[in-house]
Simulated scan of single mutants.
Amino acid sequence: MAELLVLRHGQASFGADNYDVLSDLGRAQARAAGAWLRQMEWTPDRVITGTLNRQIDTASEMGFAPAPETHAGLNEYDFANLLEARFKDAAPELATGDRRQHFRVLRETVFAWQRGEIENPAETWDAFTARVEAARAFATDTDAKRVLIVSSGGVIGQMTAASLHAPAAHMMNLNLQIKNAAMTRFVFSGSLFSLNEFNATPHYATPQGAALMSYS
């Protein structure tokens, strides 16, 4: 059996003009994850990220030798576009640091997207799930025994929900739980693909490491 370890990127720049930049905390989270994996003698044979800066830079901070490949199927869904498509000119202001409002609107918007209630989004729900599956297939079509992916919460939530044959709404319930630089592990062999571990953060399991914990 081979392993697919999917890591959510480190903390990005919540509330900033450009979210797609790792914070100093995000860089420290990525380094902690890489250090813990090396301590466990878990070294990837293959590294894959999406094309977003926060994903690529997380992989870089982890410091593993294989040159990362990229696959756009691992990119996060475009929440800003979904907001614009859902609310038109009446989109709520979310760049204020109010995290509770942000995540409530995020959850409701994704559920509406899944139900096909948002007109003309840049990407449909079906297109999103198809590209996530294409990325999963790309990552597991390999002779490598240890594959590391760096992606985002929505992609990880969808990959996990699909592996469990769970209803679409479950993707978002999983998405909102995933901590920055958390590890979700699958095992695979041929057509077999099974969840082994979800949202694990053993690299935060010390008093010093606990200070690195974040969700956004």
Score class of each variant (00 low, 15 high):
E117V: 03
R107C: 01
L22C: 08
T70K: 04
D126W: 03
W125V: 00
G116W: 00
Y77K: 06
R38V: 11
L22P: 04
R115A: 15
T43W: 07
V132E: 05
D57F: 08
N120S: 15
A95I: 01
F128A: 11
G73K: 07
A135P: 09
Y19L: 02
L83T: 01
A127P: 00
A135I: 09
V132Y: 07
A130C: 03
I118P: 01
S23E: 12
W125L: 00
D98H: 01
A85I: 10
A30F: 12
A91R: 09
G26Y: 06
E41I: 00
G97Y: 06
E41G: 02
A134Y: 06
R115K: 09
T96D: 14
Q39H: 13
E133M: 03
G73R: 09
L22Q: 08
D45V: 02
G73Y: 15
E93K: 10
P66V: 00
W42H: 10
F103T: 14
A91N: 01
N75A: 03
Q55S: 14
R136Y: 11
G34K: 00
A33T: 11
G50S: 11
I56A: 13
A122N: 14
D57W: 10
L106S: 03
A72L: 09
W125N: 01
A122Y: 06
E108H: 11
T109K: 11
E41W: 03
A127K: 06
R46K: 12
F111Y: 15
A67I: 06
Q39F: 11
G34F: 10
D24I: 04
A28L: 15
L83N: 07
F128P: 07
A32F: 12
T70H: 13
T109S: 15
R54T: 01
F64M: 07
E93P: 05
F128R: 02
D20C: 04
A80M: 07
